[in-house]
Design a protein around this nucleic acid. Structure first.
Lengths: 337, 337
DNA sequence: AGCGTTACCGGTAACGTTATCGGTAATATT
DNA sequence: AATATTACCGATAACGTTACCGGTAACGCT
């Protein structure tokens, strides 16, 4: 790393003070046009770039947003893309740190970024996170915080998320409409809010239609094809075999699909299947899988917008919750009539 | 944002100098044990966190790596995960910026990070990038740079990449062994190095086995299922219909698969299919798709390791090229005997 | 001639931290 | 008792930048 060009170098070369150089570069009114021109010409020639560290230290702001996410799967990548787009436009640089679904790494990442590196946080918590001291610490320091997707209820911050209950409802209602009676659900980890909400939608809808929800038809497993595959195998081998499965992610849907095919059952005839996320892949397998679109890119954009609004003094936003409506895309895995 | 606790606050509270506080916190030998204890206790109590901006300004290093990537698809996400893992372990924070395959955004991102925000760069260029002034600027400033995956040949920097030619060779050789005679290739954008290398392996292998490569069997299209789907439809409708297709990504393989199924052809009997990347999805569709594993996580780790080595003064690494060997995983889409 | 105004510029302090030098008091050595 | 050594600590400068205050020279006005 070479010594970088500073304002001082220019000042010495032109035999003026650093103050004048600084003013000239910022087009201040009280600098002779001639001087300005000389300064600008030289700084151009030397390819002067202001040192953002020094500026940040002085202004106490870095124009950087810390984004903490559990992983970089399809949905979160898409959300990050949305955040990125809006943030970049507003002059912010985004710092993405993935916790890899680990509470420990989430804490470490948060702490690092907290050391005056970012102006604020956009967080989606890991599935392992059950204690929120690190999040509270952000707020103790009065640093702007926005939660998205995997939100935490008892923290007061703007929250941007999907209407997960409604997503669960749409999927379940559709299956019922198609005549399925024994609908199982492959849910995610037990303490994961988004999973529980989707399940809540599922349970509510069953109840509303006077259907019983067999306890054996509710299965918690990790966000993982392999687990989903095995869970489905068990489901299909059970005494009270379900005639439809709602999985709360497409990855899991594909795992389930594999087990269904292996068993020699046909979709949608013998068994119906609905996934969640509407990843591109679901329309490319056979049969194409019905799935709930969650508009991840939009969620990302809305999150960044809320963040920026908050940065601009919107402390009245603390209790705001932006809820995006999902939409079921029906495909052949569940379309019986 | 509240005023943060500084070393000065502690100094005033304990009626000692900032120098002493600083030394006490760093466990310097020439501080009374009693003083140390007092400082540590208070800094603990006030939850003092050193200001990394100030430190960075002083030491001229930020302990941050700028990672520029074209997007966050499966392969790159996995590589970033590898980079992250190694970098975190070495005390670096990673700043991921995606260019979204746009030359303009790649430039903007690079420039921003160049303003003293990062100690070095790890770059994978966008498919749109044909001019490399922004990359050369990094080197002009003597800032460490490592290229990975989508590398640029005429830039002198450590490069970590897959042996793409060999990947193309393995795929093609396998298809030939399975008795396929008319092997088409779905390649990526024309100026994309990784695509051209995989194609080179394909062409070399055809030649080595005395097979002609029909010009109509070489198709360039974007990394995109939809394009691949349409391109395959055309291929299958052409006079000289291929009996096998090698796609240089799994996304494209799935697009191709869709077209093949639609046409009513069976794999591997009527037509063979081999993809690239070995994404989890390929083993979950029917038939499972053969694919070339590129060990993305390993590439990510190797990249970060090379970067760190370079940071530690390894300027002798400038011409080093680490080449990871791929490995074909054979599945039912191409296993005829 | 004396005063105010304008145009322009320089010096200093500050952001938070640490390296370096130097100093003082207590203790050890002769 | 005089000197050397040790243990401990404070002041200062520096990293690069800008806000703020102040100053000088030139000019115009009465």
């Amino acid at each position: 790393m070479e010594k970088q060009i500073t304002i001082k170098d220019i000042a010495i070369a032109l035999n003026i003070s650093t103050s004048t150089v600084s003013r000239a570069l910022r087009d201040a009114p009280d600098v002779k046009a001639e001087t300005k021109a000389a300064v600008k010409a030289l700084s151009e020639k030397l390819d002067y770039q202001p040192n953002r560290l020094a500026l940040s230290l002085l202004n106490r702001q870095t124009n950087t947003i810390g984004v903490i996410i559990p992983n970089l799967d399809y949905v979160l990548s898409t959300m990050v893309k949305g955040i990125d787009e809006v943030a970049l436009g507003a002059g912010y640089t985004v710092m993405v740190c993935q916790s890899d679904e680990s509470y420990g790494r989430e804490m470490v990442n948060t702490k690092r970024l907290l050391d005056s590196l970012v102006d604020g946080f956009i967080v989606s918590v890991s599935s392992e996170t059950k204690v929120f001291e690190h999040i509270k610490k952000i707020q103790d320091k009065k640093i702007p915080l926005v939660l998205f997707d995997r939100i935490v209820n008892n923290i007061e911050a703007p929250k941007i998320r999907l209407d997960n209950i409604d997503g669960g409802r749409q999927a379940t209602e559709h299956l019922i409409e198609q005549g399925y009676k024994k609908i199982a659900i492959l849910a995610g980890p037990e303490n994961l809010n988004i999973s529980n909400k989707r399940m809540e939608g599922y349970l509510q809808t069953l109840k509303a239609h006077g259907l019983r929800s067999d306890k054996g038809h509710i299965i918690h497993c990790d966000f993982n094809q392999q687990y989903a595959y095995e869970a489905t195998k068990e489901l299909l081998a059970s005494k009270n075999r379900p005639d439809a499965i709602f999985t709360i992610s497409d990855r899991m849907a594909i795992g389930a699909m594999l087990a269904i095919k292996e068993k020699g059952l046909s979709m949608p005839h013998d068994i119906g299947l609905v996934g969640f996320n509407n990843e591109p892949i679901v329309s490319l397998v056979t049969p194409a899988i019905s799935s709930v679109e969650m508009y991840a890119f939009e969620i990302g954009k809305a999150t960044a917008k809320a963040f920026i609004e908050m940065m601009n003094g919107g402390n009245d936003m603390l209790d705001q919750e932006i809820i995006i409506k999902p939409k079921l895309f029906v495909r052949n895995s569940s379309k019986r009539n």
